[in-house]
Amino acid sequence: MVSVSTPVRWILRILAVGYVFFLVAWPTALLAYRTFQDGLSNVIDTFQEPDVQAALLLTGRVALIAVAINLVFGVTVSILLVRYEFPGKRLLSAMIDVPLSVSPVVVGLSLVLVYNGRDGWFGPSLEDNGITVIFNTPGLIMATCFVALPLVIREVVPVLHEIGNDQEQAARSLGASAPQTFWRITLPSIKWAVVYGVVLSTARSVGEFGAVKVVSSNLRGKDLTATLMVENKYQNFQQDQAYAIAFLLVLVSIACLVVVAVLRPNTED
């Protein structure tokens, strides 16, 4: 450590704490304050409303499915990227990072372009077969999958690199088939990275707004997710209810962070 004089140290501390306080802690605290300003009645009323319940259920369902898809896809792609050589590998690796850099609104718009029922590439033929993607749950799931795509992969890939393939080869030489090796050796070795990736994906999926905003019809009770419901309530001058839903979303994120914080030390063995 470089030694820093006492006043400088205090200024740095105040700056850091102040920054986080004004940007994160205070607004969130105020949100909690406004939620419970008039006691619990506002909260109870809000969560008893069928539209709100539908929105929360929808968010839960979309997040669950999107995380499940990203889990399977993420682990598969990670193993592909680390253990195999194939043409286009670097391109694939770069593509996976696109969701991190591109704005979620763009994601939503591009999905609409491809899948909308009137002049999208696949939209009309899918709709002829009874599958509506845009303005419907599949669209929400796709948008959510897209934005949360890299999270599992970026957790798992470094761990796969680190453990190397010695253990897998040893398992093969001891008679294990490829699936047996995966379930008994690879998966237990990357377990914590997978869990961490899933937690991050869950937080991201529950909180997604921009991409789902574009692909949703924004009709209450149809395909309005919890984040969209917050916006909807807020714009309809039902601020207190918006705060209550927002506060619930904050709680979910905090729960995710706590899970991560509890898990993190376990990864070091």
Binding site: Q167, Q169, S173, L174, R184
Partner: peptide, 27 residues
């Protein structure tokens, strides 16, 4: 490899880190 019935010992041991000694041997 799994059909050749060979035992292979690696320079860096390649132990199964998440299994006990007995489980490793029993694999």
């Amino acid at each position: 490899p799994q059909k050749r019935n060979v035992g292979f010992v690696f320079q860096h041991y390649a132990v199964f880190k998440h299994m006990s000694v007995a489980k490793n041997v029993a694999f």
